[in-house]
Simulated scan of single mutants.
Amino acid sequence: MSPSSLDALMLSGQVALWSLLVSGPLAVALAGWMSQSQRADHPFMNSLILLPVGLPPVVVGFLLWSAFSAHGAGGQLLHEWLGWTLRLVPDGAVLVASVMVTPMMIRMLRPAFEAQCPELLATVRTLGASPWQSWWSAWWRPRWPAVASAWALGFAAAWGESGATIMLATLLPDATRAATVPLALWRETPSQAWPLATCSVALAMMAVALSEWTRRHWRTQASRAHRP
């Protein structure tokens, strides 16, 4: 494997980790809110939050470029206030991956959050548990396998996100210096791309397998909890 391919693997791994740090807690918070709030269960609100799942990735990339690049109103304000300018790596790649991955994880997490009785947390508090103990035992422990499953699949999706990233690469000036896996595969010849593609398939298989294992663990745990 060439040094450029290794650099692409490392950079894509960093982008996926940063995206997960951004989108993971946000997906958990939004999924919890949407599963408990009647206002959040409105069809328009659901459609708005989950909209990136149905949009072509290139459209997402174009919209983010329009909003946050130096040519967009949001990008100009951020540059004036904070001196920040959108770059493809890591800013743009993390941004597009987070936008694409967050609604996917929300979609996965909502059934797990909705399956539990909302009064359980208050019931545990009446038995003398502290707020931390009640949150840990009644909220987090039954849900952590579902959260781990969503995060593992989210990492794989952020790693392989290509359409929006490539769209940004055609629009941002620093694209020639970027070397994420999607961009490296886009630029390499077929013979040079095989090692990078093989590593990507192997990593995706491990992430999806971890997601499936934790999903099965959550299902087993949930079925035990509902037994009389």
Rank of each mutant, 00 (worst) to 15 (best):
S5C: 02
L6Y: 01
D7K: 13
M10H: 07
S12P: 02
L17W: 11
W18G: 15
S23E: 00
L26I: 01
A27M: 09
V28Y: 07
M34I: 13
R39M: 10
D41I: 01
F44H: 08
N46K: 12
P52M: 03
V53Q: 14
G61M: 00
L63P: 02
G75S: 14
L78W: 05
H79N: 15
W84E: 06
W84C: 06
D91K: 03
G92Q: 03
S98Q: 05
S98Y: 05
V101G: 07
V101Y: 05
R110K: 15
P111M: 11
E114D: 15
Q116A: 15
L120A: 15
A129K: 00
S130H: 11
W132H: 14
Q133G: 08
W135V: 09
W135G: 07
R141M: 12
A146F: 06
S149L: 05
A150D: 02
W151F: 10
G154F: 02
W159G: 00
S162Y: 10
G163E: 08
G163T: 05
I166P: 02
A169T: 04
A169N: 00
T170N: 09
A175T: 06
A175G: 13
T176N: 12
T176K: 12
A179F: 04
V181P: 01
P182H: 01
L183K: 02
L183N: 00
L183Q: 02
S191N: 11
A197I: 08
S200V: 04
M205S: 15
A207T: 10
R215C: 13
R219D: 04
R219I: 03
R224N: 06
A225S: 11
R227E: 12
P228L: 09
